[in-house]
Design a protein around this nucleic acid. Structure first.
Length: 402
DNA sequence: AGTCCACAGGAAGGGCAGGCGA
DNA sequence: TCGCCTGCCCTTCCTGTGGACT
C-alpha cells in the first residue's frame, strides 16, 4: 500500500472530529427511537399488522407517497417492533424487507422468490432452476416453520414495470398454496398513480388497506432535522439559520426528508473538512451543489460504453450551438462517434430507449413534441451545469478514447 | 377531411452467458 | 457433457401519435 494512503487513513483515525457525534444518525437508513409527525401512520400500520400476534393473517397493505415521506422508515419501524413483540409470545412473526430496485437481488420473479427463501434459511441457486421449483422451495420453507410472514416490497412499482402485474397476482394469492404458514404483503411505492395501472383483481387484493403518506412541510422537516442533529452533531456546532435553510430547500422538493438529511450531513462534512468550528449557511449552499454534482458524475462513470457514446454525441451537438436537438440529429452524430471510436452502432430504436434512460437519470431533458407534418420526435437538451459538463467530458473522453 | 412525417414505444424473439441437475 | 432454465442486451417489425400541410 502506498505510504500516502496509509497517512490519510492514519490521519483520519487520529483526527478528532469537532462537529460530528454520530454520523450514522444523519443518514436516511438510520431508524430513530421516535419518528416525528408520523404517529397516525405508525398507529394505522401497527393496528393492521397486530392480528399476526394472535396467529391471524394481517391484511395486505398498499402504502404510497412521494420520496422521503417516511414510508419505508415507518414500515420498517413497525415491522421491527412487531417482531420484538412476537418473540415474547407463541406465534412467530417474521418480517422481511426487500427493495425491488436492488439489481441482482429482487429485480426478477426468480430472484425475488429465491431471495425470500434465502432469508428464511433455504439456499437457492442464483439461476438455473425452473421458477416453479423456486416457488415450491419457498412454500416448503414457509410451511415447515409455521411462520406468519410479512413481506415488505419497497419500490414495488419497479417490480411490476419489469414483470407485469401477473406476478403480483400470483404473489398476492400465495396463501392458497400454503398449508400452515400465512403471508401478508406490504407494497410501498413513490408512484402515486401506480395503483391505477394495476389489474383490478391485483388492485383489490394488494390494497386491502391503503395508506397515503403526505409530504412533510418545512416546519415538520425542521423538527426531523433538529432531532437528528441532536443525535448526530455535538452541541452548539450548527448556526441557527442552517436547519431552516435545509428544511426550506427540501420542502421545495415535495417535502423530501431524505434530501434534507443529506444536505445537513454533507454541509457538516464540508465544514469539518475546511476545519470550520461551526456549520453555516455557506456550507449548506456548497452541499447543495456537491450533492447534485456527485450524483451526476457517479452515474456517468458507470454508464455502458454505448450510452457514453450517445451522451458524447449530445454534448458535441450542443457545443456546435444546437439547441432543442431531435432524436434524428443525435442519431446521425452518434453514428459518426461510433466510427471514430470503433464501436458498432446500435439501432435507432435502441438509442431511443437509451435517451429515455438518460432523461430518467436527469442528465438530459427530453420531451416529446409534434412538428406537424414534419413528424413527432423528442426535443432534447442537456440538463447539467457548465462545471459538471466539463467534468463529464473528461470522463467520456478517456473512456471512449476520443 | 385526409395525408404525411419522424419518430415513440410495445411485442416478439434471437443470441449469448452463466448456472443447475442428471 | 448435455439439455434446460433464466437474465440481459439487442434487433426487427409493427402500430400509434399529433399537428402541419394539402
Amino acid at each position: 500500500m502506498p505510504q500516502s494512503i496509509q497517512t490519510i487513513f492514519q490521519e483520519f483515525i487520529e483526527k478528532k472530529t469537532v462537529l460530528f457525534k454520530d454520523r450514522d444518525a444523519l443518514t436516511s437508513d438510520f431508524t430513530p427511537d421516535t419518528i416525528p409527525h408520523r404517529n397516525k401512520e405508525i398507529n394505522t400500520v401497527a393496528s393492521i399488522l397486530a392480528p399476526s400476534l394472535k396467529g391471524g393473517k394481517p391484511s395486505n397493505i398498499f402504502i404510497y407517497g412521494m420520496t422521503g415521506t417516511g414510508k419505508t422508515l415507518v414500515t420498517r419501524y413497525v415491522g421491527c417492533e412487531l417482531e420484538k413483540m412476537s418473540n415474547k409470545g407463541t406465534n412467530p412473526v417474521k418480517v422481511i424487507y426487500i427493495n425491488c430496485k436492488m439489481k441482482k437481488i429482487a429485480d426478477t420473479e426468480y430472484r425475488l422468490v429465491a431471495e425470500l427463501s434465502r432469508i428464511l434459511g433455504q439456499e437457492v441457486p442464483i439461476t438455473g432452476l425452473p421458477t416453479e421449483h423456486v416457488y415450491q422451495t419457498f412454500f416448503n420453507v414457509l410451511d415447515s416453520n409455521n411462520w406468519i410472514v410479512v413481506v415488505i416490497l419497497d419500490e414495488i412499482d419497479a417490480l411490476v414495470n419489469k414483470m407485469g402485474d401477473d406476478f403480483l397476482y400470483n404473489f398476492t394469492r400465495i396463501n392458497q398454496e400454503l398449508k400452515r404458514a400465512k403471508v401478508s404483503i406490504i407494497g410501498i411505492t413513490n408512484d402515486l398513480h401506480f395503483i391505477d395501472i394495476l389489474d383490478p383483481r391485483v388492485k383489490s387484493s394488494l390494497s386491502e388497506e391503503e395508506i397515503l403518506f403526505s409530504p412533510y412541510n418545512a416546519l415538520e422537516l425542521q423538527d426531523i432535522l433538529k432531532q437528528r442533529a441532536e443525535l448526530g452533531f455535538k452541541p452548539g456546532v450548527i448556526s441557527d439559520e442552517v436547519i431552516p435553510k435545509c428544511a426550506a430547500l427540501a420542502a421545495q422538493e415535495h417535502g423530501d426528508a431524505r434530501r434534507a438529511l443529506d444536505l445537513l450531513r454533507v454541509a457538516g462534512e464540508i465544514a469539518e473538512r475546511e476545519n470550520d468550528p461551526k456549520i453555516t449557511e455557506k456550507h449548506v449552499d456548497m452541499a447543495l451543489e456537491k450533492i447534485d454534482h456527485d450524483r451526476i458524475i457517479e452515474s456517468v462513470k458507470s454508464l455502458p460504453k454505448q450510452t457514453k457514446a450517445l451522451l458524447w454525441s449530445i454534448i458535441e451537438l450542443e457545443e456546435k450551438g444546437q439547441k432543442n436537438m431531435q432524436t434524428g440529429d443525435i442519431y446521425s452524430v452518434y453514428e459518426d462517434v461510433c466510427k471514430e471510436c470503433a464501436l458498432h452502432p446500435l439501432t435507432q430504436r435502441r438509442i431511443s430507449d437509451l435517451i429515455s434512460e438518460l432523461d430518467m437519470m436527469g442528465i438530459i431533458n427530453a420531451r416529446i413534441i409534434s412538428l406537424g407534418r414534419y413528424g413527432r420526435t423528442r426535443e432534447i437538451n442537456p440538463n447539467v451545469s457548465e462545471k459538471v459538463k466539463n467534468k463529464m467530458k473528461d470522463i467520456l473522453k478517456s473512456s471512449l478514447m476520443i
